[in-house]
Amino acid sequence: GSPGIQSFLPPGWEMRIAPNGRPFFIDHNTKTTTWEDPRLK
């Protein structure tokens, strides 16, 4: 199987799917959430 997208996120980050189907990202380091992919910064 191919590695999940989770493995490509920075340490402490998690990806979830919102009720509307959009992915969002949780930064457990700062306890914040964002719509922006942290890998694109």
Score class of each variant (00 low, 15 high):
residue 36 E to Y: 12
residue 9 L to Q: 01
residue 5 I to T: 14
residue 29 N to E: 07
residue 32 T to H: 08
residue 40 L to S: 11
residue 24 F to T: 08
residue 35 W to G: 03
residue 1 G to V: 14
residue 33 T to N: 07
residue 39 R to W: 06
residue 37 D to A: 03
residue 29 N to D: 06
residue 12 G to P: 04
residue 25 F to A: 00
residue 20 N to M: 02
residue 36 E to W: 12
residue 2 S to Y: 09
residue 28 H to Q: 07
residue 15 M to L: 07
residue 31 K to R: 10
residue 11 P to S: 08
residue 30 T to Y: 04
residue 41 K to P: 15
residue 5 I to Q: 14
residue 35 W to I: 05
residue 13 W to V: 03
residue 25 F to E: 01
residue 18 A to C: 15
residue 41 K to F: 11
residue 2 S to E: 14
residue 1 G to I: 13
residue 14 E to W: 01
residue 16 R to E: 05
residue 11 P to W: 06
residue 16 R to S: 07
residue 7 S to L: 10
residue 9 L to M: 10
residue 35 W to D: 06
residue 33 T to F: 12
residue 22 R to I: 13
residue 8 F to I: 14
residue 18 A to E: 06
residue 35 W to F: 10
residue 40 L to V: 12
residue 29 N to S: 08
residue 14 E to H: 03
residue 27 D to L: 01
residue 30 T to V: 03
residue 7 S to M: 11
residue 23 P to A: 11
residue 1 G to P: 13
residue 29 N to I: 10
residue 8 F to P: 15
residue 34 T to M: 06
residue 33 T to A: 12
residue 24 F to R: 07
residue 2 S to V: 11
residue 24 F to W: 08
residue 10 P to S: 03
residue 26 I to F: 09
residue 8 F to G: 15
residue 27 D to N: 11
residue 23 P to E: 11
residue 37 D to S: 02
residue 41 K to Y: 10
residue 33 T to W: 15
residue 13 W to Y: 04
residue 30 T to R: 07
residue 39 R to I: 04
residue 4 G to A: 12
residue 20 N to F: 02
residue 14 E to R: 01
residue 6 Q to V: 13
residue 12 G to K: 04
residue 5 I to R: 12
residue 32 T to K: 10
residue 5 I to L: 12
residue 21 G to P: 11
residue 25 F to S: 00
residue 38 P to D: 01
residue 17 I to P: 02
residue 21 G to I: 00
residue 38 P to A: 01
residue 4 G to H: 12
residue 37 D to V: 01
residue 16 R to Y: 08
residue 14 E to Y: 03
residue 36 E to N: 09
residue 41 K to M: 14
residue 4 G to E: 15
residue 10 P to G: 04
residue 34 T to G: 04
residue 16 R to L: 10
residue 37 D to G: 01
residue 29 N to R: 07
residue 20 N to W: 04
residue 7 S to E: 15
residue 24 F to P: 03
residue 7 S to D: 15
residue 11 P to Y: 08
residue 3 P to Y: 06
residue 8 F to H: 15
residue 33 T to D: 03
residue 14 E to V: 06
residue 29 N to G: 06
residue 41 K to H: 14
residue 2 S to H: 12
residue 6 Q to K: 12
residue 7 S to K: 11
residue 37 D to Q: 03
residue 38 P to C: 02
residue 3 P to T: 14
residue 29 N to T: 10
residue 17 I to H: 08
residue 11 P to G: 07
residue 15 M to W: 03
residue 37 D to C: 05
residue 2 S to P: 14
residue 15 M to H: 02
residue 16 R to N: 05
residue 37 D to T: 01
residue 1 G to K: 13
residue 34 T to S: 09
residue 4 G to W: 01
residue 26 I to V: 10
residue 24 F to N: 06
